[in-house]
Design a protein around this nucleic acid. Structure first.
Lengths: 262, 262
DNA sequence: TCTTATTTGTTCGTATGTATT
DNA sequence: GAATACATACGAACAAATAAG
């Protein structure tokens, strides 16, 4: 097509549409390696520049992930290997869910119930102010214990979730241990006399930070969903967790009852 | 800079960063008209191609909106005029919130409490199957009354929210009226004996449809947050609303209590 | 370890189309 | 109709990262 001929929809968007359809219909299956851009250009009758723009669109949608270099073990353009993951925000804090089939907390239960294999890497550290702004706004400028969780489904990174706990609550307790035991740390808070009675979550979309992009294998234009989660024991915030999720990868479910009067 | 000299970060990303900073620090204030691409290219010492790529990035983030043509009344590159809007998912269904200062439902109250002026255009229609897939999955293949709300803050379109109500509930009642009265339609459901006792919401990120892009003034690469909201009267779903929000524009708040045992 | 091949990233220059004032 | 401004496309060149031998 000569450069000056413009149809209703731009070529690069049409190519993106075709590749997206190919991903959905099995031509480019989940987890597979895509052909190189020059091959795709020939296949769709266009130039590498157009395919490259299409590629960038699909990356922003989290459908593909590109590692530069000669295609092989690591490098190449990869189709996202797993489907959308559902997060049940309310029921996940019920004891029977958190302990489902011996799970260590809500995430384990969540991934297993969807037929995938969960894995969580955990780093524990102490941190002093300044804390991340959103966290300090809630917990105040005091030392905290941080439980940094790096979470995988079928060995694919799907979530980052650092939890911040006031050090005067956590220090020297089971909350500072790697194995949080049956039911996860929510159960440990209860053991310590800080039974969480109320949860607040604040959801927003934002650009990914560099560490998030590296861990979640996101491209620069792919948005991240941030869930700012606070667990309250009475009037006191005892836990703040900042969940970072690839925006297009997750489905978030909420459920609540209405009380009268209406 | 010659084409083969590459610094750590691509020029077009650096330019996007500079413009984004300019928007945040008041150089390009909310609601203002940006200079044309050739002017920006000169200002940042680069070419129009680079500025154009930067522009596309910022559009994907919903920070600017471009209307092609000679700059003037309508055309040009505009900085998004309003800040992030907060949606309180749980408290918004309490009667005192819905009726705040005489508000007609939750959205009115929400926008007013944030110092902006709400406006809602409403179209009411009857529809027969096939309904949108997600809606039919919940309500079944039956005729519905649709209340299509088009919502503005300070006359800027900020949300689309069609509500689907089974026709056997809504027909000939206040639910089919334009003015939903004090407290909005949730109060009208209660009047009709369908007191909503439970709410479920399912949140996902997706590409915008053409009508959404047109109404919300979104660019093709800007994601939309969809909230699939269902109101239940006992075991029966009596209302499904599909909220479409510009992804980066909204902050969604949830809150709930934990019951024992933990 | 070093060299070569492959693949995507970035930029430039140019040309033309399309939309609005 | 003229002027302005963004949209798209092509082609070329070189950079940078990874793979293969």
């Amino acid at each position: 097509m000569p450069p000056h001929v413009t149809t209703a929809r731009a070529q690069y968007r049409q190519v993106a549409d075709l590749i997206r359809a190919g991903i959905e219909n099995g031509e480019y299956p989940p987890g597979s390696l895509m052909p190189p851009e020059p091959v795709l250009a020939a296949r769709y009758g266009t130039t590498r520049a157009v395919v490259s723009k299409a590629s960038h669109i699909l990356r922003g949608e989290g459908l593909i992930h590109v590692i530069r270099g000669r295609a092989g073990r690591g490098a190449g353009t990869w189709v996202r290997p797993i489907p959308v993951i559902r997060r049940e925000a309310v029921t996940r804090y019920r004891q029977e869910v958190r302990e489902y089939a011996g799970s260590r907390g809500a995430f384990d239960a969540e991934i297993r119930s969807q037929g995938m294999t969960p894995r969580v890497d955990l780093q524990i550290a102490r941190e002093t102010p300044p804390l991340p702004l959103h966290v300090e706004n809630i917990l105040g400028p005091w030392p905290v214990l941080v439980r940094r969780r790096m979470m995988y489904a079928d060995d694919i990174p799907v979530q980052l979730a650092p939890s911040y706990i006031p050090l005067d609550i956590a220090d020297g307790t089971a909350l500072a241990e790697k194995d949080s035991g049956p039911g996860g740390i929510v159960s440990r808070f209860a053991d310590l006399g800080y039974r969480q009675t109320r949860i607040t979550e604040s959801i927003r979309l934002r650009r990914a930070t560099d560490p998030e992009r590296a861990f979640l294998r996101l491209e620069e234009d792919a948005p991240v969903t941030e869930i700012l989660h606070t667990g309250w024991a009475g009037e006191r915030p005892v836990e703040v967790t900042v969940h970072s999720l690839p925006g297009y990868l997750w489905l978030l479910d909420y459920e609540w009852s209405l009380s009268h009067p209406q």
